[in-house]
Amino acid sequence: MSYESKDVILQVENLSVVYDGKTIIKDINLVEKDTQRAGKIQGQTIAFVGRSGRGKSTLFRALTGMIEPATGKVLVPDISKYNGEAHTIALKEVHEGDVGFVDQKYTLFRHKTVYQALHYAMRHAKLSEKEKKEKIDQHLAEWGLEKVRNQYPNELSGGQRQRTAILEQLLGTGTMMVLDEPFSGLDVGNIQNVKQAFELVNASHELNTLIFSSHDIELTVELADSIYVVGYPALDNGQRTNYGTVLQHFDLKKMGLAWKDELNGDHLDLIKTIKKTMLDS
């Protein structure tokens, strides 16, 4: 499958986060580029896997600008300078609100109905009231939330809440969205829904970039086109440290494993490799 890598859309340099004097993650460096495929709008799907407590959520809080890194920086596209043409993406340091963030609990405003929440998320959009309403209606229908549009979060099922949380970020923030364990606690049907949501997001804008974490390695390999394994690095003497960093990176596009409908033998080998790295860390 042919593709091209264009502008840098995410750059993390020498990132570390310290909580109360304790280093949680350190030495994180990564670069992700805009993927372009002929005749198709193709967003990016980046995944982070790693055992519990290795710092995925912490890394995500830094990626979304929710916490100040102790060292290093996170660079994301400055959407205000992008005009749709190649090589016009300028990078800037991330600030809260630049990158969408759906946490593991699908937090919503408890006092806003689904419709009100989406409307609030679009408050900065340069659209008329009528256009906003149409856009919301269209998304509610596409995402199967038409029936619950006037319900509050405490009246929604877990899956409905999650779709609302994703939609809210989609309508409200730029092109980049971070989702912390979006598949945990969902049934097969819900997982299917979120997978479709991912496809919808990926196909709706060239720059759209989804970043997620998961403990389901099979699903991760199926969905992502770039996978990072986070874990405790080994020192030269073989001992493990207790801060997280990127141990391995798999570019599934380069490996010819991205965007496949079915998993093949190569995918299964990759899953084994990832699991081994995780177990060792």
Partner: peptide
């Protein structure tokens, strides 16, 4: 903290977070 961060991720200023999450919410 998640509720505060949720509002921040939707481009709320800190005073908007206070208004939406603490006062109205």
């Amino acid at each position: 903290q998640e509720e505060i961060d949720h509002a921040r991720s939707l481009k709320c200023t800190r005073w908007e977070v206070l208004w939406e999450v603490v006062i109205k919410g």
